[in-house]
């Protein structure tokens, strides 16, 4: 079974973000980047399916130059090949532009299954996988908690809202977006990191793939959200803060 898994490099969690002077995006300098956490679950699921059914796992990203390290990380964890569609504009691209690039690269590869994470921790569109399926003409299912790929068809468990689930059957090839927590992700081993250096790594430019990077939705301005709630910040030593809090919860909020 040939599995394509889409990964994105995003700014590390808990980073202190600074908005660039024109207010359009964040300043990159000084930040560290990592694989989008929801994508780590998609990658892990791809590796597990390969271990069970054989075949190949190809990790693909559309991102700026720095994103190559995220593809390498996927190779170190066990992906067989990497594809990087490189262009600085992908750092801020909308879903459609990203999905178009991914689709153009994926069309060149035989594929039975395409996996993506649920959403990205930066732009958080939560739709690149579904748009990609539509552009490739494939059926899709989202927020997947279990995959049974043993038969001719894919049997998947979808998460619905508020504790409900649903089993769905799809013909192959198909695209699935993976819910975080579906598995326990592995770490790269030293041996894996060494091996990754010799694994095939393909680079494309948008021109190579004959695609334009054009946004259909534009971020006009990025800014700090306004406080909707007047938060009272408590200060002092841990003991003083705790005493203040208990007093406020008793006499001000009257919830104790």
């Amino acid at each position: 079974m040939n599995i394509l898994v889409c990964v994105k490099q995003v700014v590390a969690r808990d980073s202190v973000l600074r908005i660039d002077p024109d207010g359009k995006w964040i300043l990159d300098d000084g930040l560290t980047f990592e694989m989008n956490e929801p994508d780590t679950y998609a990658l892990e699921e791809a590796l597990r399916l390969k271990e069970k059914h054989g075949g190949e796992v190809i990790a693909v990203t559309a991102g700026p130059e720095r994103s190559a390290s995220t593809v390498r990380e996927a190779l170190a964890k066990g992906a067989d090949r990497g594809i990087h569609i490189e262009d600085e504009r992908f750092a801020e691209a909308d879903t459609f532009a990203t999905a178009q690039a991914l689709a153009a690269a994926i069309e060149k590869e035989p594929h039975d299954l395409i996996l993506t994470g649920l959403q990205s921790d930066d732009s958080g569109f939560g739709q690149t996988g579904v748009v990609l399926a539509e552009l490739l003409g494939l059926p899709h299912a989202t927020i997947i908690m279990e995959i049974d790929a043993s038969g001719n068809q894919l049997r998947c468990k979808r998460e619905l809202e508020a504790g409900w689930y649903q089993n769905v059957t799809l013909p192959k090839p198909a695209l699935l977006t993976i819910q975080s927590g579906i598995n326990k992700v592995r770490y790269a081993t030293l041996m894996g990191i060494k091996r990754a250096r010799r694994k095939p790594f393909t680079r494309y430019t948008p021109d190579d793939l004959g695609i334009a990077v054009t946004a259909r939705q534009r971020l006009q301005r990025l800014y700090q959200p306004q406080q909707t709630q007047q938060t009272e910040f408590l200060q002092g030593t841990s003991r003083e803060i705790s005493e203040q809090l208990v007093a406020k919860l008793r006499f001000e909020a009257r919830v104790l």
Partner: peptide, 19 residues
């Protein structure tokens, strides 16, 4: 013009649509 959250709710963005 739509307002949406980015970076896990740390920042907001104003978004317009082309075409």
């Amino acid at each position: 013009v739509f307002v949406r959250q980015l970076f896990q709710g740390k920042l907001n963005g104003d978004v317009t649509m082309e075409d």
